[in-house]
Design a protein around this nucleic acid. Structure first.
Length: 718
DNA sequence: AACGGGCTATTTTTT
DNA sequence: ATAGCCCGTT
């Protein structure tokens, strides 16, 4: 504990200080990018404890990602020089999980419930659909998954259903119902369910709610603009009485509307909580003035804003470099070359980030980096606990914890292959469905049923015995021994070894890594209410874990704009700043989605501390076909005084401001507006062929895109 | 059970 | 372009 509380306020600016020691009333901190948001949150926690004398136990701090939670915890510990491990700092899901474990009975859950990640969830949905005989071609399981999660995010149970009862909703609803039943049958809880159950716990158990309202006298919520309906309701229920709630957010950085986040929650907060105070953090400590001004200019084109303008005491810095490339290869080559030069001047690879709108863009960039021997690290992709071999091993562990876990059974019933084919699996499923029992129970029944074919019986019995044997062998074992036993005796290791080649090798390595992960876990937090195994399984599902492998090597960081939120780099490249890609073509039509794209652009720009490159390519190959794009409107929204254009390639002899893409012998240009006597106005998007054979592709407002033979089409510019 | 051909979808992602 | 997935064949 620190004696002199004023140290908490040292080195804060006025706004930050006001936020840190604001009275315990509803407090909204509108914190712009790079304005010291986390800092304020951490210092406010410290203030509550040290200056106001509140117990650390009375504080609940909620974040969205495990990374943010970890960082907050360690910074609180650092600032207060105390152990914060007993404090409740965690993700929404993590905290919901903890509550549900503590009150599983009252939440209507079995005490050994398991968590389904989205992959598990999809598999289960597929299975349910097959049982309902819903055609997967016609009704993509992904869509059903999306529907179910969306319903849950809105707080709707399967029986409540959407107001509209069109055919689509009816089918989806049917799947939702069956899925819900399957989850309950097997004691399975998906991510959205964690949140929904946690909310229902408040609603159904007023006494319990009251207890936690008193317990958590101070609630702090990070990245509030990302909360969905359920999360907000949960927060509200917990803190509305006391009003001791601090939320930190930035409506300009709301980029997850597409997955249920509601910026409107910030507005509702104002209505729902009396005496709310708003504090704006507008001084930016990250970027040069040029970068900041550009970001401000872009975001000012949005209508839906609470209003906030970042400023800095920093110097102007270098102008923002806008590079027009001929195609994506050239763009990539340019970026790689610039990186090479930058690092010759004693800068580290790790100071650099390449950001892009969609993951598909990473490939070309990667190739260029490789050819110039630049080390890089790509974010995204499969994480450790999502790898197939890991999930197989975890499924066996889940069966030890609870054999009724259908999702786990489905996964490993025939992995490694033990002669349980589709036919047998169908038999099991049918039995389970008809008798409303779990797959495990169905298998046991089939094994003792004289009707069952002997061959089938033998293979099923082998599986049953295996699981029972594993359970027995693991009984008094430590966690990592359990994993070891399971992997050996289930034949998983053997199975993957047989695969041969590079892939098999890395799989084995991963499985060995799993044992290490268990060892590490054993040394750390063991929840007294849970068996180590259950705790570990939950940990695996809730913290799927970044690939940490290359984290310590200095490498150029490549990631999507979305995953760059919260990070900062001295040098940032944004690749593919083109209409149709960024803003994405699927967002261009809808003004709300377009604003979200613009916020994404704002996030991208504000990642840069010293130097920013915005790159676009005139021609880009997407899904195997060439597309001609004009420079993104976001580029044009940056006043030219902050920008410097780079044109190395003589072929692109055109300033980005006035888009006038590639000419060819037709006399028309890509991007040009044309009038057709029948189809009306449209934009040229493509050419093909020359002379009499020349064809032109035009995106008409009335009929969409069409290929026309130039010699016959009576086109006129407009 | 393993392989291969044809078909399809393909923004963003955490938990 | 390409990866995943289904279905048919070996």
């Amino acid at each position: 504990m620190i004696e002199d509380v004023s140290t908490i306020l040292d080195e804060l600016n006025d706004a930050q200080r006001n936020a840190v020691c604001a009275p315990s009333n509803p407090l909204l901190i509108l914190a712009g990018a790079g304005s010291g948001k986390t800092r304020v949150l951490v210092h406010r926690i410290a203030w509550l404890i040290s200056a106001e004398g509140h117990s650390p136990y009375s504080i609940l701090a909620v974040t969205f990602t495990n990374k943010a939670a970890k960082e907050m915890r360690s910074r609180v510990e650092h600032l207060l020089k105390m152990d914060a491990s007993s404090m409740w700092i965690g993700t929404f899901h993590g905290i919901a999980h903890r509550l549900l474990r503590a009150h599983s009975q009252q939440a209507g859950l079995p005490d050994n419930f398991q968590i389904l990640d989205s992959d598990d969830q999809l598999r289960l949905i597929k299975r349910v659909m097959r049982e309902l005989e819903v055609d997967e071609k016609e009704w993509p399981p992904r869509q059903a998954q999306w529907f179910i999660n969306q319903q849950k995010d809105e707080g709707l149970r399967a029986h409540q259903g959407p107001n509209v009862s069109d055919f689509f909703s009816k089918v989806m609803q049917k799947i939702y119902k069956a899925y819900e039943q399957a989850c309950n049958q097997s004691g399975l809880v998906d991510f959205a369910e964690l949140l929904l159950r946690a909310l229902e716990l408040w609603q159904k158990q007023p006494a319990l709610l009251k207890h936690y309202q008193q317990r958590f006298a101070h609630l702090l919520v990070d990245e509030f603009q990302d909360t969905n309906k359920i999360q907000y309701q949960w927060i509200k229920a917990l803190s509305q009485n006391s009003g001791n709630i601090t939320i930190v957010g930035d409506d300009d950085q709301s980029i997850y509307g597409w997955r249920g986040a509601k910026v409107e929650n910030i507005h509702d907060f104002e209505k729902d909580f009396q005496n709310m105070q708003t504090i704006r953090l507008e001084q930016n400590y990250r970027s040069t003035a040029n970068i900041l001004n550009a970001a401000n200019a872009v975001i000012s084109h949005n209508v839906e804003r609470l209003g906030k303008e970042l400023w800095t005491e920093d110097k102007d810095g270098e102008p923002i470099q806008v590079y027009a490339a001929f195609n994506e290869q050239e763009e990539a080559r340019f970026i790689a070359t610039r990186i090479k030069h930058y690092c010759e001047n004693d800068r580290s690879w790790g100071d650099i980030a390449i950001l892009y709108r969609s993951n598909a863009q990473s490939r070309v960039l990667e190739e260029s980096l490789i050819s110039l021997q630049i080390p890089y690290r790509i974010y995204g992709g499969l994480r450790f606990f999502e790898r197939a071999e890991i999930k197989d091993a975890l499924s066996y562990l889940r069966l030890i914890a609870s054999p009724d876990d259908d999702a786990a059974i489905e996964r490993v019933l025939n992995v490694p292959p033990r002669g349980i084919g589709m036919k047998t699996v169908d038999l099991v499923r049918a039995r389970a469905r008809d008798n409303s029992i779990s797959s495990w129970q169905a298998i046991t029944e089939l094994c003792s049923d004289d009707q069952t074919n002997n061959r089938i019986k033998t293979s099923l019995k082998r599986f049953v015995n295996l699981v029972i044997q594993l359970q027995a062998d693991c009984l008094d074992q430590g966690l990592h021994q359990q994993v070891q036993v399971v992997m050996q005796d289930s034949g998983l290791i053997e199975h993957y070894k047989k695969g041969g080649g590079e892939k098999a090798l890395s799989r084995i390595e991963n499985l060995e890594e799993l044992i290490n992960a268990c060892r590490d876990f054993e040394d750390t937090d063991l929840d007294e209410n849970l068996t180590p195994l259950t705790a570990f399984l939950s940990h695996a599902a809730l913290e799927s874990g970044d690939v940490q492998a290359s984290e310590f090597d200095s490498a150029v960081q490549m990631m999507t704009l979305h995953s760059a939120k919260g990070l900062e780099y001295p040098l940032v490249f944004v690749a593919g700043v083109e209409e149709g890609l960024f803003p994405h073509s699927r967002s261009i039509e809808d003004p709300l989605k377009l604003e979200e794209e613009r916020r994404l652009c704002y996030v991208g720009i504000t990642r840069a501390m010293e130097k920013l490159y915005l790159c676009w390519a005139e021609k880009r190959r997407i899904y195997g076909t060439d597309h001609y794009h004009s420079p993104s409107r976001f580029l044009q929204e940056i006043p030219s005084e902050y920008v410097q254009e780079i044109r190395l390639n003589a072929q692109v002899a055109r300033p980005y401001m006035h888009s006038q893409p590639s000419t060819n012998d037709t006399g028309f240009n890509v991007g040009q507006r044309l009038l057709h006597p029948k189809f009306g106005e449209g934009t040229v998007i493509h050419f093909e062929g020359q002379g009499q054979q020349a064809r032109i592709q035009i995106n008409f407002e009335s009929v969409g895109s069409k290929w026309l033979v130039l010699a016959y089409a009576r086109l006129s510019p407009c």
